[in-house]
């Protein structure tokens, strides 16, 4: 059979699979969950096959890169069907952020800057949701904004999600009085700089077009001095680094941060120097924050997949190194 034919068959199989389960969803098949024995069997099979790959590598037979992709795909997808729960150990910096928020007196104003867009949402959205929920539970006032164009939309999604909780809904929180979305402003770090003297100059109106002066929650918020705490959810530039350098170090704003895991290691320097009041790093940070706050949401749910994927990656790092030391790295330049 030609490669083209195989590819078409695979494509057909994927389409059929999708159609069957999509209609299944419409017909109300419900969700699937592996029984514990099946989960165990899956784990053992994956473990054995990895061992086999290692043996092959030791024998000098290298596997194709696409095999690695398949392993990672399974490692991520299968745990989503498993019913295990994973023990989550909480880091001090996660406690620090949670405590900073919960120790604020009721009515304090918390500024949350959404400096990310949908590509980083899997890591940062669970953080956003749980941070907003903690704020509402503690009767803190939430001011959201974004230095990334899609940030305020992510904020609205997070708010919608939080309001699905009946306990939060029962508080009858009002837009403009208990929370507000100031929207997006272009200008990157210069926006933070200008906010140091006037919020209103950067956000003459909120996301919905209401003039700043007419919003009760922020009417008396002139600059960072009138905000009690802030949280920056960041996926890059502009993000936590800029907030720390301008808002924290220049204007004395108290700030905690939630970062994508890529950025987190850099932020530890700021945490260590006391420039950050707590830090959530990546999905594990989100899961830990959920654990501290005492509820299970997406961060916790995804951690099992995350851990499985990590085990597979570690296995392939070992396998890759075995292959590396067997062959010896040849420089492309010398080998030309």
């Amino acid at each position: 059979m030609s490669t083209r034919a195989k590819e078409l068959i695979a494509l057909g199989a994927i389409t059929l699979f999708a159609l069957v389960f999509y209609f299944g969803k419409i017909w109300g098949w419900g969700t699937f969950e592996f029984p514990t024995w099946l989960s165990m069997v899956v784990i053992v099979l994956i473990g054995l096959s990895l061992l086999w790959v290692l043996i092959l590598t030791l024998k000098g037979q290298l596997i194709e890169r696409r095999v690695v992709f398949i392993y990672v795909a399974f490692a991520v997808a299968l745990p989503l069907f498993m019913s295990f729960s994973q023990k989550i150990t909480i880091s001090p910096e996660v406690y620090q952020l949670h405590n900073a928020l919960t120790e604020l007196p009721a009515g304090s104003k918390v500024l949350i800057s959404f400096d990310y867009d949908p590509p980083s949402a899997p890591e940062l959205q669970p953080m956003a949701e749980s941070i907003i929920r903690v704020c509402f539970e503690k009767d803190l006032k939430v001011i959201v904004m974004g230095l990334w164009p899609q940030g305020p939309q992510q904020a609205n999604l997070a708010l919608e999600k939080v309001f699905e909780d009946s306990a939060i809904l029962a508080k009858n929180l009002q837009y403009g009085r208990d929370y507000v979305n100031l929207g997006f402003q272009t200008g990157n770090e210069f926006v933070i700089q200008r906010m140091g003297s006037s919020f209103e100059s950067m956000f003459p109106s909120d996301y919905e077009g209401t003039p700043y002066r007419e919003i009760p929650l922020v009417r008396n918020v002139r600059n960072f001095s009138n905000v009690d705490f802030s949280v920056n959810l960041s996926a890059g530039f502009p993000g936590t680094v800029e907030w720390v350098q301008i808002a924290v170090d220049r204007y004395g704003l108290l700030m905690g941060a939630g970062n994508t895991a890529v950025q987190a290691p850099v932020m530890y320097a700021y945490l260590n120097a006391g420039q950050l009041e707590g830090l959530l790093g990546g999905m594990s940070g989100a899961a830990e924050f959920e654990a501290v706050a005492g509820y299970r949401a997406k961060g916790t749910k995804f951690m099992l997949s995350q851990s499985f994927a990590h085990v597979v990656v570690i296995a392939f790092i070992i396998i890759g190194n075995v292959a590396f030391f067997r062959s010896g790295r040849k420089s492309k330049l010398k080998g030309k």
């Binding site: 990672v72 991520v76 989503l80 899997p122 890591e123 895991a261 990546g282 995804f302 995350q306």
Partner: peptide
């Protein structure tokens, strides 16, 4: 971890 999170998403 970050990349895996995107894939999980």
């Amino acid at each position: 971890m970050s990349r895996m999170s995107l894939l999980i998403g």
